[in-house]
Design a protein around this nucleic acid. Structure first.
Lengths: 242, 242
DNA sequence: TTACTTATAGTATTTTTTACTTTAAGTTTT
DNA sequence: AAAACTTAAAGTAAAAAATACTATAAGTAA
């Protein structure tokens, strides 16, 4: 079946073919965490429109790719990493949102361990840089709106699913985990109670290893157990951080 | 700026214009509630592809509409109602998901008070009918996948936001509310405790009115107070039904 | 050895959840 | 009109969870 057969008509008898003129893009909000700050990786655009503006990394989607493929590609070109944690969160479709044509974009937020990679420059980005999510520059297109929604989504998700671990190194202390959550959610936890709560969830595996190069009693290291979470979830467990 | 100027190129030097060949559609999962059952409104397709199959109501998006407009239009043509509660939940982009061309669809779930409307037939639907969400027919396209995700989203959302009220008449008893949640979540609540919990949230306004035409002590009627919820939410309140 | 810092265990209080009981208020039947 | 029945709605006691705080342990640095 070919489009130009005009086989399939919409309700108002417009040829099917005429509906096929949308551009699709993906925009990625890559979050990282370092020195107690939650950060997002932005690029400086190397081409018009919005040349020299800071923007979300993203790209137009080609006909052979799913949105997930396209977003993975963007993240790979940006960081050199594959299998980054990534989740779709919203479609943005304001008619005038893109100055060059009718482009609908799908937002993905993604989480990385900041130290694991060096941001790479590319044809569409003259520079890439981490920004504290509370100190953001002016952004191209409707990217501020997209980023704001991504931050809101992250804050909600991080309370209801154990995805915060994606931002930490594989081995971490309980205090590091607490500080991460405090940075993400914007409020403090009581240390002994935070410990108790997290450990009672049985999601953390204690390792036979402690911090090194610290000038005080070194804390025990833990790792997150994704399989354990999967099992518990099937049994009805629901991750929830107050 | 016109597309054929080829002003804006992707990373691989493909003319910008060639990216603009996607079809966009919206598909709506309209949920209702009647006689203790959660239901979804499906249509029988009146045209190929998948003629005579049951399917989600949806339509291709035209260039002058946002996705929200398009979804509202679908719901209006289906029910005759405007301002139906509706929320975007996912974009579906498998390359082969539509047999006629590359169509990416955005899923919206919507909630109505079942008794408020009569489903209407239209050019793209020879019939529309409510189905119990546990007794669904075979569906066209990838609509089963879309519907499954919508049901999962509804079950999660209904616990964390007071949207269940959209499925009930404006005036309802606490037992009616309890039965709705039991149908949605698939487990039972203790009656006195359910009452206590809901009333302690201060989201329900007691009315000077009771049930009529019941063969037992009539229960007091309540209404949901959306403004109160808005205020409480800003103060940090978080709706949560275990 | 002492001072200092942070880890980690423990405890006591308050609040919330859970399970269950009792009483009230209406309708229907006899 | 009384009795039986059904559901509403309030109350209560036990268990569990969250909260606030204290004490001790284990390391580093002076």
């Amino acid at each position: 079946m070919r489009l130009d057969e005009k086989f399939y008509l919409s309700e108002n008898n417009v040829p099917f073919k005429e509906f096929f003129n949308f551009g699709m893009s993906v925009d990625c909000i890559l979050f990282g965490y370092k020195n107690g700050e939650v950060r997002v990786l932005l690029i400086e655009r190397g081409a018009d429109p919005f040349k020299h503006f800071w923007a979300l990394p993203g790209d137009l989607v080609t006909a052979d790719l799913t949105l997930e493929d396209a977003a993975s590609n963007v993240l790979y070109r940006l960081t050199g990493l594959e299998n980054i944690f990534m989740e779709q969160f919203h479609a943005f479709s304001e008619v005038q949102r893109h100055p060059v044509g009718r482009v609908i974009t799908i937002g993905y937020y993604a989480l990385v361990r900041s130290e694991n990679h060096k941001p790479v420059a590319s044809a569409w980005a003259t520079e890439s840089k981490w920004f504290n999510i509370n100190k953001l520059p002016e952004l191209a297109f409707d990217h501020k709106e997209i980023l704001d929604l991504a931050i809101g989504t992250l804050k909600r998700k991080v309370r209801n699913e154990p995805i915060g671990f994606e931002l930490l190194p594989p081995k971490f202390t309980l205090l590091e985990l607490q500080k991460l959550y405090e940075a993400l959610l914007g409020y403090k936890f009581d240390k002994p109670n935070f410990r108790k709560k997290l450990l009672s969830m049985n999601l953390l595996v204690p390792l036979d290893e402690v911090q090194s190069n610290v000038s005080h009693r070194p804390a025990k290291l833990f790792k997150f157990d994704p399989d354990r979470y999967k099992t518990l979830k099937e049994e009805g467990f629901h991750f929830d951080l107050q």
